[in-house]
Design a binder for these strands. Structure first.
Ligand SMILES: [Mn+2]
Ligand SMILES: [Mn+2]
Ligand SMILES: [Zn+2]
Ligand SMILES: [Zn+2]
Lengths: 139, 139
DNA sequence: ACCTAATTGCAAATCTCTTGCAATTATAAA
DNA sequence: TTTATAATTGCAAGAGATTTGCAATTAGGT
C-alpha cells in the first residue's frame, strides 16, 4: 500500500540523488514549511553545495509527485514547502509579527467541499486554508 | 454606523482623486477579483490613462484601509483585489483549466477560529480559504 | 492666491521563480 | 566493463510581479 519516496521517484523515471536526499533531509528535520531560499541557506550550513536553481527544480519534482506540499501564506510573496509523504493533511497559522508558523493538525472541510460541489457544480480538487494573527509571544 | 469610501479615505488623510475613482469604478463593475495588470488593462480600455505603478499604489492604499480585499489564489503568482466595502465576507473557487473564479458566498470558520485560538493561544486576525478544481464547462 | 502634503509618472531596482544550454552523472542494455 | 541514453546539475540569462527613488503635478485648507 504505502510506497517509499525512493519508489515514488523511480516510478516516475526520476532518481534519488545525493542532492535530492539532502533537500529531503532538511525538510524532514524542519517542523514548519520552508521557502526555497531558506532551504538553500540550510543546505549551505550543512556544507551541502547545491545551486538555488537546483533547489527549485527539486522542489518542483517532489511537489508534482505529491511528496512535498507547496504552501502559500497570505502576503508572503514566496512559496513554502513541507513533507507530505506519510503525514496527515493539515493547515497552518502564521504570526504577523515574528513570522512563526505553527501546524494546525486538522481539516474541517470535508462536508463543506461536498456542499460546494453541489452548489457550484465545480469538481473540487484542492483547497488552501490559512490563518494569521499574533502568537503568544507577540501579543 | 456605515461610512462611505470617500470618508474612509479622508479620515486617513487621503484624497479621492479621479484616478482612485476610476480604479474603484472598475472594481465595482467586476464580479470577481482582478489583478493589478488586469485592472490596468481595463482602465486603458476605458480611456483612463493611469500608470501601472499608480494602480499598485492605489490598491495598497485601498487595501490598507480595508476598502478592498487582497486575494491570493493558489499558484497564481499574482495578487487579486475586489471591493470589500459594504460587501459580505466570502471566499472563492477557481477553475484550474480556464481560470474562471466564482464567489462562494459563505464562511464556515467562526467556530473553528475560536477553537484555534483556544488551542494555539494565537489571536487570529485573518484567514484565507480558497478552493480550486474544474468548473462545469471544463470537466 | 499661497502653502504644504498627497499624488502621480517614469525609470530603475528587487524579489521570486523559470528557462536555455552545455557539462556531468546515473542506469541499464550490450 | 564498455556504451548508449536519459536524467541531473550549475551557471548565466530571462520573466513576471511588485516596490522604490525622485522630481513634477495637483488637491485642499488657510
Ligand atoms: Mn505543516
Ligand atoms: Mn468575491
Ligand atoms: Zn484541508
Ligand atoms: Zn472566511
Amino acid at each position: 500500500m504505502k510506497s517509499t519516496i525512493d519508489e515514488d521517484l523511480r516510478a516516475a523515471g526520476h532518481r534519488l540523488t545525493r542532492t535530492r536526499r539532502a533537500v529531503l533531509g532538511v525538510l524532514e528535520r524542519t517542523k514548519y514549511p520552508l521557502s526555497a531560499s531558506e532551504l538553500y541557506e540550510r543546505l549551505q550550513k550543512n556544507k551541502v553545495s547545491i545551486d538555488l536553481v537546483t533547489v527549485y527544480r527539486t522542489l518542483t519534482v517532489l511537489r508534482d509527485l505529491g511528496v512535498v506540499a507547496q504552501i502559500e501564506l497570505h502576503k508572503e510573496g514566496q512559496a513554502r514547502f513541507e513533507i507530505r509523504h506519510g503525514r496527515e493533511h493539515h493547515h497552518h497559522i502564521r504570526c504577523q509579527v515574528c513570522g512563526r508558523i505553527a501546524d494546525l493538525l486538522l481539516c474541517p472541510l470535508k462536508k463543506l467541499t461536498a456542499f460546494i460541489e453541489k452548489e457550484t457544480q465545480f469538481i473540487v480538487n484542492e483547497h488552501t486554508l490559512e490563518f494569521s494573527g499574533l502568537c503568544p509571544k507577540c501579543q
